[in-house]
């Protein structure tokens, strides 16, 4: 084999390894594999009075199983409520009396939308709204309530 052929083979190996590493990075390390699921699926909306630290791309779970992702979050300018748009994978059908709540995974983990399926025979379709919602728990509010209660209890003694 002449010298330039060896050089060309090595460069070919180098380019293949480099592109392979980039491809594996994309597939193995990032969330690219999930992208196809995101494009498909139907959209649901829900109004929340407080979404805490919920973000776009946060998971939507039923019984702990991820069935979709938050697609968009914006503010309803009339009611001053957060509107959360979710994309649910099409194989999961939800009854139209389902309840959407915002929970936290772990004590300090990230927040997600949990859906409790209802018992209605009618299913939600693309663009529908989940009517019954429960907002995120905000730690400061809880502490505030607790303090108010504590002072009320200790108040009458004095």
């Amino acid at each position: 084999m002449d010298n330039s052929r060896i050089v060309e083979i090595w460069v070919g190996v180098f380019v293949a390894i480099g592109l392979g590493a980039l491809f594996l990075l994309a597939m193995q390390v990032s969330n690219l594999a999930e992208f196809r699921e995101q494009k498909t699926g139907y959209r649901l909306r829900a109004h929340f009075s407080n979404i805490g630290t919920l973000k776009v791309r946060s998971p939507v779970k039923i019984a702990g199983v991820t069935v979709g992702r938050v697609a968009a979050i914006h503010l309803d300018p009339e009611q001053y409520q957060a509107v959360v748009e979710m994309r649910i994978q099409p194989q999961y059908k939800l009854p139209d009396d389902s309840i959407a709540s915002i929970y936290t995974s772990g004590l300090l983990g990230e927040q997600y939308v949990a859906i409790e399926a209802g018992g209605s025979p009618e299913f939600l379709e693309d663009g529908d709204e989940i009517e019954i919602t429960q907002s995120a728990l905000v730690l400061e509010e809880l502490i505030g309530k607790f303090l108010v209660k504590a002072t009320e209890e200790s108040g009458p003694k004095e």
Binding site: F14, V15, I17, G18, L19, A21, L22, L24, L25, V29
Partner: peptide, 12 residues
């Protein structure tokens, strides 16, 4: 070469 090498570095 740089992006290929950086991809290799990151992956390894």
């Amino acid at each position: 070469s740089m992006p290929l090498l950086a991809g290799l570095f990151t992956y390894i």
